[in-house]
């Protein structure tokens, strides 16, 4: 029995490590080729770089305007996620605590809207918002993310608020706290775990989103996925530079993940199961 168990364990480990290697392999190719000379890449993409060159990174940093795109991505993600947290937690609190027919229908409407793919309304969406977008496209993108993200975030908060006893609200109101004060001082701090989930799910979506920014943003305001895509399109023949550009695009989010690994995993499992 014991040997059978250990054989099973070894086999599982073997399969696991092979798959982990396979999953990592594309990134290995990107990193290893990002520091090679062009000729060396085509000679053997698998070989370790000799000599190592950092020119590719230097070129990619300027040509894809890395720091500007990174800043744009950060600004758009931070503002959208913060506003989504504020608005959807308040909306969810209202809908969960108001026991009326209309609040029930509003909630059902929000849930139903989650099935609508963006592509189904993308064309009239652009027709409607084209003038608005040209005025300030980063601000309008944040506005759009609130509109498209509010349903899921409210849904997640709603589930959590239902588990907070209403006695807490009542106690606060007896003590003379207004609705707003009671919500922000007492209820909101109690929702830390679900706020983390909402933040992570929305941040991942917004950070990586491509189609909406492609429609809305201009060259000056483009985000990291957008500038990477355009850069790759222009310089894909310059393999080394293209690989350096990809490496630069991958690194920020992976670092962020490695720091907050536990929150990511629990955030995603909670967000999906709800």
């Amino acid at each position: 029995m014991n040997t059978r168990a250990s054989w099973g364990k070894r086999a599982t480990f073997g399969v696991g490590i092979t798959l982990a290697f396979a999953y990592f392999f594309p990134f290995f190719l990107v990193f290893v080729n990002s520091v090679k000379l062009k000729y060396d890449i085509l000679e053997n993409p698998l070989a370790f770089p000799a000599p190592i060159t950092w020119d590719n990174f230097q070129q990619a940093l300027t040509k894809m305007e890395f720091f500007r795109s990174l800043t744009n991505s950060l600004i758009i993600t931070v503002f959208s996620v913060s506003l989504l947290i504020v608005f959807s937690s308040m909306l969810a609190y209202y809908l969960a605590r108001t026991k009326s027919k209309s609040s029930k229908y509003i909630f059902l409407g929000l849930v139903a809207s989650m099935i609508v793919p963006f592509q189904a309304l993308m064309i009239p969406f652009m027709a409607l918002f084209a003038p608005f977008v040209s005025w300030n496209n980063r601000a309008s993108l944040v506005f759009f993310y609130i509109g498209f993200g509010v349903a899921l975030s409210t849904f997640l908060y709603h589930g959590f608020i239902s588990t907070i006893p209403t006695e807490i609200d009542e106690a606060a109101s007896i003590d003379g706290a207004s609705d707003m004060v009671a919500f922000w001082k007492i209820i909101f701090p109690m929702m830390r775990p679900i706020t983390a989930t909402v933040a992570i799910i929305n941040a991942l979506w917004i950070w990586n989103d491509f189609l909406l920014p492609r429609l809305v943003l201009t060259r000056e305001t483009q985000t990291l996925p957008l500038s990477t895509y355009l850069f790759f399109g222009q310089y894909s023949i310059e393999y080394g530079q293209a690989m350096a550009g990809l490496a630069l695009a991958v690194i920020p989010i992976v670092i962020f993940y490695l720091i907050l690994q536990r929150q990511f995993i629990s955030g995603i499992s909670q967000g999906a199961v709800k």
Binding site: A20, F27, L204, N208, D209, P225, S236, A249
Partner: peptide
């Protein structure tokens, strides 16, 4: 296993295009 999921589809797509 999880890391590819963190990265946007466009970036994954161009990696595999290469």
């Amino acid at each position: 296993f999880f890391v590819p999921n963190l990265i946007g589809g466009v970036i994954l797509g161009v990696i595999w295009q290469f």
